[in-house]
Amino acid sequence: MAKVKGAVVVDIEKCKGCGICIDDCPTDTLAFERAVNGKGYHYAYMKAPELCIGCSNCAISCPDTVITVYRVKPERKKTS
């Protein structure tokens, strides 16, 4: 079975760097970025994009709803 591929987009300027998404990610895809955003927070980013399965756990648990999630289904990947 082909693995489901996912990707998340973090609204960097709105992220407050609380790390709850990182704690809640089942595949350890997310991590704190070394750089900071305009507010001075280390925002979340995809450290290991290949691990993301697009489960949207991070987006649901994000208190500030700054995460958007995309996913590619395996059957679609086969046809491409």
């Binding site: 987006a59 995460i67 999630v69 996913r71 590619v72 289904k73």
Partner: peptide, 13 residues
């Protein structure tokens, strides 16, 4: 590519 081709699974309501 995933963002361009993939399905939007979750966005801010």
């Amino acid at each position: 590519e995933i963002i361009a081709k993939g399905d939007l699974v979750y966005e801010k309501t």
